[in-house]
């Protein structure tokens, strides 16, 4: 699994670490970690609805911060559980541009096993870094 929940970091909240060979795969892993905090059985989310996500930020870590928020936004505004399918990140001058396709469906209380709701992505100890193997991020979610 390209992400792991961290045991003793945030006592009342949820912390996770995510990895990817590329920046794009790291973003996909981290978004799945956010969704997996709320829904135990990610595989039960059928890719029926599609949403396009477009973001731009001068800081790469804040681009990830904004990207993760999108999944919380759709969960509240449309009760839509989404997983990212394609992510592209390009740098143009000082700015990073992200385009993503996310797919999923409306929350079904019978089929989707709930865990806890995520209120927000926090910036406390938020890290995105390049490693020898690729990319790594550490995130604390407010529960």
């Amino acid at each position: 699994m390209p992400y792991q929940f961290l045991e003793e970091i945030a006592i009342a909240d949820i912390a996770f670490q995510a990895w990817g060979d590329t920046l794009e795969t790291l973003f996909i892993s981290a978004a799945d970690a956010v969704m997996n905090t709320m829904i135990d059985n990610l595989s039960a989310i059928a890719p029926q609805a599609t949403r396009k996500i477009e973001l731009a930020n001068n800081a790469l870590d804040l681009l990830l911060f904004e990207f993760l928020q999108e999944f919380i936004y759709y969960k509240d505004s449309e009760l839509l559980l989404l997983r990212p399918k394609e992510v592209t990140i390009q740098q143009q001058q000082q700015t990073y541009h992200l385009t993503a396709i996310a797919k999923g469906e409306e929350l079904d209380f019978q089929r989707h096993h709930q865990r806890v709701d995520v209120k927000a992505v926090t910036l406390h100890q938020f890290q995105l870094e390049k490693t020898a193997k690729g990319w790594q991020a550490r995130v604390i979610l407010d529960i």
Partner: peptide
């Protein structure tokens, strides 16, 4: 409420240091 806080966290990050010269130890 979660979104209001998220929105203004980002607003403050943009102006805190450049406009008001405030340095903090944690972005949160």
């Amino acid at each position: 409420g979660h979104q209001v806080a998220t929105d203004y966290l980002q607003t403050f990050l943009k102006v805190m240091e450049s406009k008001y010269g405030i340095k903090i130890l944690d972005r949160e």
